Simulated scan of single mutants.
Amino acid sequence: MQHQPGYGHPESPERLRVIYEALDKDGLGRRFLRPQFLPADLDTLRLNHSAELVRRVAATQGKETHALDPDTHASARSHEAACLAAGALIDGIRRIFQGEMDNAFCLVRPPGHHAEQESSMGFCLYNNVAVAARWAMRNLALQRIMIVDWDLHHGNGTQESFHDMQEVLYLSVHKYPYYPGTGAAMENGTDKGEGHTINVPLPGGQGDLEYARVFNELVVPVARAYQPELILISCGFDICKGDPLGDMQVSPEGIAWMTRKMVEIAAEVCKGRLLVTLEGGYNLNAIRLGALAVLAELSGEPIAGWPVNLSAEKAEELAQAKTKVKCPALEQAILIAREFWPV
């Protein structure tokens, strides 16, 4: 909450405040563990970022305002918040593997998936999900981690981090062409990582049915083929209807359904080891309802009185999405992915 990117900036502390207030209302948050955890130290951040970037971001500590790029600003405690954000993911993964938690949703700021190895950008100081994946490879000896990114914007930083590796499969569903300009369908990894980057570049205006097709026909089959030991989700609520930075039309029920599919496939392939982390989303009502939708599905059972519960009728409609909606961008992505994943 102390990361202050500046007056009028869309990535404001209000994004978390509305989620916290919803969880505190009527004791809803008591269903979930809310553990204390340590920040990521500088050596851990350097698993994914250059020493120069870590030095540059750390140097903002105590400064009231500092621009890291035209739309990425730090305040006096931003570096502290960024270290805690990465630390939250690491702690969540550790607790999942130790059996203390079934799964996790890291409500963090600043977001991370745009931060590259050498640069902070796109509201992101460090790449939380990439740092956590690197930590898991080093400390848990994981050899197959799947990152699913459904933020409105392509996660250029995450793709850059793992484009030449087999140990991480990065699958992004995003608006294209759009910021940051990466994420074309033909970007599918290099060297040993060829085929381990999968991009689904959608036009604007896509809703629940289009996203359901992507998950039914690409995300789930690839997860079955890859057999990850851990699934990480970069969850952006800027795909929701009404977001000021986007024009996608996904509903809270659509968010719930996508989360349910990931819970199901994680149970099938990696003992339920699933961690969701907050990326973008700038409509406060959409981010509140989206976060509650994710938590309801992670809990594994309907929650009486919960603001978002996925109905059986809606779930069935999305399960049958293929017969109801055209999605040429998905069909192109499938043709490219099929070269590496015959399923």
Rank of each mutant, 00 (worst) to 15 (best):
S234E: 10
R338G: 05
P70G: 06
A266E: 09
G181A: 13
Q206R: 15
C240T: 12
I233V: 15
R224E: 14
V173I: 15
G112Q: 11
T72E: 01
E339A: 15
A319T: 08
G99K: 08
V18A: 10
R109Y: 04
F215T: 11
H114R: 10
D43M: 11
G305Y: 02
D71Y: 03
I147R: 08
L16P: 07
P203Q: 15
A225C: 07
G155I: 13
C106S: 10
F32I: 09
L171H: 02
V54C: 02
L292Y: 06
V148Q: 04
T65H: 04
C270L: 07
T277R: 05
S234H: 04
H154V: 13
M146F: 09
R95L: 08
E116N: 06
N156D: 10
M101K: 03
Y170K: 03
C83T: 15
R56W: 00
D43F: 02
V325L: 09
R338W: 05
S75Y: 01
Y170L: 01
V148S: 08
G246W: 02
F37D: 07
T182F: 13
D91T: 11
G204Y: 00
G246C: 08
L278S: 11
T182C: 09
D24Y: 13
V269E: 06
L84N: 04
L295G: 04
A88P: 01
Q166V: 12
G242D: 12
Q2H: 13
I265H: 01
L38R: 14
I93P: 01
G254W: 02
G189I: 12
S120Y: 04
E160P: 00
A185G: 14
P244A: 14
N199P: 07
H49Q: 05
I93H: 12
V276K: 00
E80I: 11
P13Y: 07
P228R: 04
V308P: 01
G195M: 08
E210F: 00
H114C: 07
L47R: 13
L295D: 02
R95C: 06
L140S: 12
R56F: 00
I287N: 07
K324Y: 08
H49D: 02
S75W: 00
L125K: 01
E118P: 00
Q166Y: 02
L284A: 11
P39W: 02
R273E: 09
G246F: 06
L152F: 14
A85Q: 03
G87Y: 01
S311P: 00
F32P: 03
M186T: 12
R260V: 03
Y20C: 07
R56D: 12
E316L: 14
P228S: 07
Y126I: 12
R94S: 14
G92I: 12
G157E: 09
L335F: 05
I336Q: 10
G281Y: 14
L152E: 06
D151V: 08
Y7V: 10
H49G: 04
L318P: 11
A225F: 00
R273K: 14
T60Q: 02
T323L: 10
P35L: 10
G290R: 13
N103H: 09
E229S: 14
A225L: 03
S78M: 03
I336S: 03
G62H: 06
H153D: 12
L274V: 07
R134G: 04
V148M: 05
F97R: 15
A212R: 01
S50Y: 00
P342M: 03
E301K: 07
H49R: 09
L171K: 03
A321D: 08
V222Q: 01
G183S: 12
N216W: 00
Q36I: 12
